[in-house]
Design a protein around this nucleic acid. Sequence first.
DNA 1: TGGGATAACATGGGATCGGATGGGAAACAA
DNA 2: TTGTTTCCCATCCGATCCCATGTTATCCCA
Lengths: 159, 159
Amino acid sequence: MAPGVSSVFLSTTINGVDAKGRVSVPAGFRAVVRNDPEEKIFVWPSFEGGYLEGGGQALLDRYLALMEEMDPYDDARAAFEQTIFGDTRGLAFDGTGRVSLPRDLIDHAGLGGKAAFVGLGARFEIWDPDRLAERKASARNFARDNKKSLRLPPRTGGV
Amino acid sequence: MAPGVSSVFLSTTINGVDAKGRVSVPAGFRAVVRNDPEEKIFVWPSFEGGYLEGGGQALLDRYLALMEEMDPYDDARAAFEQTIFGDTRGLAFDGTGRVSLPRDLIDHAGLGGKAAFVGLGARFEIWDPDRLAERKASARNFARDNKKSLRLPPRTGGV
DNA sequence: TGGGATAACATGGGATCGGATGGGAAACAA
DNA sequence: TTGTTTCCCATCCGATCCCATGTTATCCCA
């Protein structure tokens, strides 16, 4: 496979979360981590809001490398380690490509029956569909209010 | 070793400490040290606060190498050696994956019935759940206020 | 180009396995 | 002995595995 063709998380998919907390990971997302040493995704609660962040082994390694570069007794390092690694779960797929989300992650994201997987390249986010719609709306407004600074070409339908 | 191939401690797990001082080490943590020459974890009281720090053979080796690099007559070296290695215990698992924590370690961490194992990549910490909650809150705030210093390239190398 | 066959994906429920925990017996130290 | 630690067994509960079903996308051929 050509490098970079399906090696990134793309597009948004909404799947159901059942009573056991199980949710199908979009097939395209599974393909991204298919050849990882451990075929699983790593997920943690965002410290910026009520949603989850995740990625594959590659993303985790990048965070680990980032931490190694910081001073061992830097307060920032300790805070990030605690906040990110301390709450990160490695989730393996069952035979049909599902993972089961721990209850605390479901609660943090406010997931009620549905989960939206949002591909963002090297990583992805998991949202409650309603919350995602809100964020999208405000992001759109922000973009409109700031389009001059964003240098958007006129008349594109875009994103 | 490649950075972070499964061999990292992740996420937070709270297990019970019984009257004998026994506590189940989270299965995921046991898996990390499964192939160590000695299948045990090494734990010592943190000199930064009322909690414990620990890791596997790999972590211990790294600290040893670090010490070797320091000047033999450096006061700091002596202090670190004394503080870390002097109080480090190697704890072996019983048949069901438990270790029994010595009384002085329990006291240092203020453990009362419960112990929170916090995975931080190459190492882990053991906290009393109440103390952990306090620190987690402040770490989270710190992380949010300083996220800019966590330089995260938004994309993978290739693409 | 329409339509049926086929495969891939998503989902639901029951069975099974492994991890966490409690208690007691045996080995050990003081 | 007496108190302490280690080992072993029994149980509980949640996570994982497996099989069955529904649904959608894709392919192939008339």
